[in-house]
Amino acid sequence: MSHSDHQTYPGINLGDIDPRHQQRVETAQFGFWVFIMSDLVYFGLMFAIYITMIDAQAGGPGPHELFDLRSLFAQTVLLLTSSMTVGLASLALKYHLGLGRVYLWLVATLLLGLGFLTLEIMDFMNMAAKGGVPQRSGFLSAFYGLVPLHGLHVATGCLWLVILMIQMRVIGVTDQIKSRLMRFGLFWHFLDLIWIGIFTIVYFGGLAYG
């Protein structure tokens, strides 16, 4: 128990490394938190614009014609599950359960992320087929400014994960790679937090007030 107290972050063994190295890793991790919070402010602005634009449908198709709750539910479950698998990957790394296990959870995360993106793009295509394109109304511009921004983050995360797995293979699991994986985990969990806001405010909020 005693040594879990000073391990703030999961996914890395800092127990037997010298304190200076640990300090550096924690500083990098905190710096990444700062990046995430500034990204959060950007998302917050897009949410604010969306809320003020819910009414501005200009006679175009609104939430009731465009949103598909079944697909939304599937996307939510996929992303939530991937948030757990990335956590399990970091635990497999932390407790030396073998690289096979680490890759297994990381590949699962990647597939779940790609599944999420596939469903999301299908949704956008269905919306566009019903006339729900960004230039149709202020409401739709705000929608397409926010939801695909999150999708772009997920796509970037998938690319990052692929690069990380290649690096693990080529460089090996060094302390630096472990610390990168830790930051990836943070980024990925953050994307799921944003998604809670999206399905609650954009989709259900749109249906309730649009």
Partner: peptide, 28 residues
């Protein structure tokens, strides 16, 4: 249906709870 009074409020509260759950359990 989210338009029913209080249903959207409940959905909002559930979303907020989920934010807290994920911050605590996933992001430590």
């Amino acid at each position: 249906g989210p338009q029913t009074p209080y249903v959207y409020l409940a959905i909002g509260v559930l979303g907020l709870l989920q934010l807290i759950v994920q911050l605590a359990y996933f992001l430590h």
